[in-house]
């Protein structure tokens, strides 16, 4: 990473689609080098918020407010993005998919290839380097996507439920990898899985309601990834489940 990861300030943002308000006056801070998780009921606007930060608001969205970093660079140049699906391209091998950001810049150097190979081996894809995405399992594909994100070497990483499609064990493994590899980056992870949040987060927010509002953050302090046997894990899990049940609004 070229510099210390910046803090991202999201200040008084309003977002509406076709005049229907998603959220109003929403403010949030992604602390420098910390892992922030955002939870909330589906359809509440979590993805919209992440896409707003990533500058991916579609044409029918109206946006007001300010999003900026505490360094002087524009935020768009400092982010990398992981979507709900792995977005691997079927005509490229795992290695070439990992290198896609360099291809799109028109410049793949030997060092880039070496670094990509190293990272792919590190995440356990030694035998898959030259395989096509169609030949890989969901977990392997998502690991390629993670390597692609890391190779962009951006200080801010935005992730939109990237591990939600994986089975429990694969997800557990990839979370461990992510915690290690995304260290010291400013990360925003959207998830619907409270356990994922507790394993990885320094700060947890819940977005709920219509228009959506943000809860006060829950802070976790022990080192990551947290083990499910960790006492802090268990306490927070209970708290988070209660908070989420409340946020979903329908008591059974």
């Amino acid at each position: 990473m070229p510099m210390q990861a910046p803090t991202v300030y999201i200040q008084n943002v309003n977002l509406a689609y076709n005049n229907e308000t998603v959220f109003k006056n929403l403010s949030m801070t992604l602390e420098s080098g910390k892992f922030t998780c955002l939870l909330g009921p589906s359809g509440v606007g979590k993805t919209s918020l992440l896409r707003l930060i990533a500058n991916l608001v579609p044409n029918n969205g109206q946006f007001l407010g300010k999003i900026h970093c505490d360094n002087s660079f524009p935020i768009q140049q400092q982010i990398s993005y992981m979507a709900q699906t792995d977005l691997l391209m079927p005509w490229l091998t795992a290695l070439d998919n990992a290198l896609v950001s360099f291809r799109l810049k028109g410049n793949v150097t030997k060092e880039d290839i070496l670094k990509a190979t190293e990272l792919l081996i590190k995440v356990g894809l030694k035998d898959a380097l030259n395989k096509y995405p169609q030949e890989l399992s969901g977990g392997m594909r998502q690991r390629v996507a993670l390597v692609r994100t890391l190779l962009q070497n951006k200080p801010i990483v935005l992730m939109d439920e990237p591990f939600s499609g994986l089975d429990a064990i694969t997800r557990f493994q990839i979370q461990t990898l992510a915690a290690d590899l995304l260290k010291n980056r400013t990360v925003l992870l959207i998830t619907h899985d409270p356990i994922e949040a507790i394993r990885l987060a320094d700060k947890v927010y819940i977005l709920s309601g219509q228009p959506a509002v943000l809860s006060s953050p829950m802070s976790l302090i022990t080192s990551k990834p947290r083990d499910p046997g960790d006492p802090e894990f268990i306490t927070h899990q209970a708290d988070l489940f209660h908070a989420l049940t409340q946020a979903s609004g329908n008591s059974l």
């Binding site: 990533a54 500058n55 991916l56 768009q76 140049q77 982010i79 990398s80 993005y81 979507a83 699906t85 977005l87 391209m89 896609v100 950001s101 291809r103 799109l104 810049k105 028109g106 962009q152 935005l158």
Partner: peptide, 17 residues
């Protein structure tokens, strides 16, 4: 697929690339 275009946009790729 929109996802690929979004990804390319966050990578700040030029249109012709």
């Amino acid at each position: 697929e929109q996802g690929w275009l979004d990804l390319a946009k966050t990578m700040q790729a030029k249109k012709w690339r």
